[in-house]
C-alpha cells in the first residue's frame, strides 16, 4: 500500500497521525465515496458571489446586470462586500497599472475555489486603449475563466457568462476537484506581484 503525505512524497511510509494524510483521506471519502462532490459543485455554481471591485467603465453595465431588468440574482449571484466571503471576481474593463496591484491583492485574499470573469474588450486585449502606457491585460494578473467581448458588453452577456461559468463548474467538477486534490495549484501569474505592487504603500 502506498501512502503519501499531502505533498506527494514519503512513499511507502505510514505516518500515524499525519494530519495531511488524514485530511486527504477525508476529502476523498467525502467527495468521491460519499458523492458529495456533485452537491458541492451544484452549490458553488449557484452561489457565485462577485466581489465589489469596479476596475473601469464596464462597471456601468455590471451594475445594470444586477438591476431589475436583468437581475442576475436569479442565477444565485449576489455582489458582496469583502474578498473573504466571495468566490468570483469580475474584471470590468481596463485595468490600469495602478489598479492592477489592487486586483492582484484582492484575488489573493479570496478563498479557494475562486473564479475570474474578464468583461469587455479592454479586458480581452486592451480594446480601444490598446496602446496606452498605463494599462495591463487582466490575463497578466489573474487566471481568467470566462471572457466577455463587447465594449461595453450588454448586461445579457454578463448573465450569459455567469451561466457559462456555472456550466463549466458543474461539467468539469471544478469545485469538487479543488477540494479532492488539494487546493488548486495557482497558475503561474504572468506578471509577478513585485512588478505590480512595487510602488504600493498601505
Amino acid at each position: 500500500m502506498m501512502i503519501m503525505d499531502g505533498n506527494g512524497n514519503g512513499e511507502g511510509k505510514v505516518y500515524v497521525g499525519n494530519i495531511n494524510v488524514s485530511a486527504r483521506k477525508a476529502r476523498k471519502l467525502l467527495m468521491s465515496d460519499l458523492k458529495l462532490g456533485k452537491l458541492v459543485d451544484w452549490g458553488t455554481a449557484f452561489s457565485l458571489w462577485p466581489i465589489h471591485l469596479t476596475t473601469s467603465c464596464c462597471g456601468c453595465e455590471f451594475a445594470a446586470a444586477w438591476s431589475p431588468r436583468y437581475d442576475n440574482e436569479q442565477h444565485g449571484a449576489l455582489p458582496w462586500i469583502g474578498p473573504r466571503q466571495t468566490n468570483l471576481i469580475i474584471i470590468e474593463g481596463t485595468v490600469t497599472k495602478k489598479m492592477a496591484c489592487a486586483v492582484r491583492i484582492v484575488w489573493e485574499q479570496m478563498p479557494q475555489p475562486k473564479f475570474a470573469i474578464a468583461m469587455g474588450a479592454c479586458a480581452l486585449d486592451g480594446g480601444i486603449f490598446y496602446n496606452s502606457y498605463n494599462i495591463v491585460r487582466p490575463w497578466q494578473i489573474v487566471p481568467v475563466d470566462v471572457y466577455i467581448p463587447g465594449c461595453p458588453p450588454r448586461p445579457e452577456s454578463v448573465a450569459k457568462s455567469i451561466i457559462m461559468l456555472q456550466k463549466k463548474i458543474r461539467e468539469k467538477q471544478v469545485a469538487s476537484k479543488f477540494i479532492e486534490e488539494g487546493w488548486r495549484p495557482d497558475k503561474e501569474y504572468v506578471i509577478p506581484k513585485e512588478d505590480l505592487c512595487s510602488w504600493w504603500r498601505g
Binding site: L39, G43, F46, S47, G76, P111, P113, A175, W183
Partner: peptide, 19 residues
C-alpha cells in the same frame, strides 16, 4: 421559486477554504 438558494450558499460556505 429558488427556495434552495440558501442551501446552495451554505454548501459553498461549508466547502470553501477557511482563511
Amino acid at each position: 421559486a429558488g427556495g434552495l438558494q440558501l442551501i446552495a450558499d451554505l454548501m459553498r460556505y461549508m466547502f470553501q477554504e477557511v482563511i
